[in-house]
Nucleic acid binder design. Structure first.
Lengths: 261, 261
DNA sequence: GCAAATTTGTTCGTATGTATT
DNA sequence: CAATACATACGAACAAATTTG
């Protein structure tokens, strides 16, 4: 047996999908039917199907059937923006202009929380382990499709210095960078993004309606003030199946073209 | 049955792994033993194990057993470098200085090929569909661990204009950006990275020794000259389990700290 | 609104193959 | 070569979700 049966079947189905025999959005034969076609047990067919799911080619819907996935055109986010502006998403142009179709972004009102900072946040925010921080959570949608989950962390110190607006569960007009400049004289000189990818946790899986073997980007954005002190750490989770990123280096680059991705 | 048994078992094993009951590198009980412990069939145990594999927590070795994965500390690549320099990897400082330990990068001699450009390359390189391009392939290692697979595509036009060195299967001293400036007067003014994530194909799976449900970053770097014309498109594949990226925006940021990731 | 039919999801038992020690 | 451990494969039964009559 050169290759296991389930891999041979997966390979055959893959070629049929990519050649257009099964078109995007259409239904595949039922597991029982495929079992007849390939003279294999239902369990073996299911192993083949699992492989194709993990490749992102098909999806199963209990009670309905197995379908060829529709490729949504991805949302593209430009990470290199204005060093001094927010770019933490709260009222900022996090969304790129790449998409040809007009898209309708929306977001929830921030949910505010005071908590002990997780370890990976204390490191980035430069606060001692166990320090209290303000966390502002937001969910974002594009055309009503869940797009990103975002949490910004601020040192409690900023509150006592006068930036009490950070505790308000509402948007901050003009963005938090402007607000912090006014209230506590902090000038943001830039930020650093740290891009990682991993499996979604349960909450993320539910919110984005992802299969459990999907992948999300986790982008950690740390913003710095004039003293090179971290002002804010923003963690944004993006499902990898519907998100891409652009990094521009140098000036005067041509605009990115729709369809380049 | 609130949750399926295999998910309950996966959850229990996960907590034992994360609490240190099973330490990284150590072996888990055999599937049969776990079946006894949890009063479940071996197939159900295997379903739980598959979940933990897709989370990247454990790995199985036929004939040996199931082991808790060792977390390698990730390689961190800074994407925002010098707009005018190569940064395509050929002799450039693609490797960051974040790692505390001294690491030993190495790479293969470029393999050169002339071929019809894949569709996604023609779009980015701004050449007509079906155009011939020069492709330069390289494999990169860090401490002998496969780190990235890279292919740079150049328009054939550059060869006829005198940049014949692109056809040589050897490193280009000083980098290709400098070389192209000398030979054909092309000045690189910057580049754009397009970051995506997907499942590995068969070749990538083999080279990086990845499970078939792993994830890789695919970074498309397009370099532009003074006329905003694409000079080169470099596609680099990074396994997500051992790679992260940094994007710096603004000047005078503090150095990234080892351990921030 | 309900019941039946259809389809995928979970679980078990069993047998055999393949890789490693 | 034998023992051990994971990988593949089949058959069967029931559960859960969805659609249809």
């Amino acid at each position: 047996m050169a290759q296991p049966i389930y891999q041979q079947i997966a390979e055959d189905l893959r070629s049929k999908i990519e050649s257009g025999t099964y078109e995007p959005g259409t239904q595949l034969p039922t597991e029982s039917d495929l079992g007849e076609q390939y003279q294999a047990s239902r369990n073996t067919i299911r192993d083949a199907i699992k492989r194709l799911i993990s490749l992102g080619l098909i999806e199963t819907r209990p009670g309905q059937g197995t379908f060829v996935t529709l490729r949504v055109d991805p949302f593209v986010t430009v990470l290199t923006g204005d060093p001094k502006s927010d770019n933490d998403g709260e009222g900022a142009s996090y969304l790129s202009k790449v998409s040809a179709k007009q898209r309708e972004p929306s977001e929830t009102i921030p949910k505010v929380e005071v908590l002990m900072a997780p370890e990976e946040i204390t490191r980035r925010l430069g606060v001692p382990p166990g320090a209290q921080v303000v966390a502002r959570h937001q969910q974002r949608f594009i055309d009503d499709v869940p797009w990103s989950l975002q949490t910004s962390f601020y040192p409690m110190e900023l509150i006592s210095q006068g930036a009490t607006g950070l505790l308000m569960a509402q948007d901050i007009p003009g963005g938090t960078a402007t607000y912090l400049a006014e209230k506590v004289g902090l000038k943001q000189i830039g930020y650093r993004d740290w891009i990682t990818a991993r499996s979604p946790d349960n909450m993320e899986q539910q919110f984005f309606r992802l299969p459990h073997d999907a992948v999300v980007f986790a982008v950690f954005r740390t913003a710095y003030d004039q003293d090179k002190t971290p002002i804010r750490v923003t963690v944004t989770i993006f499902p990898a199946d519907r998100n891409q990123f652009i990094v521009n280096v140098g000036t005067d680059l041509p605009d990115p073209q729709y369809g380049d991705g």
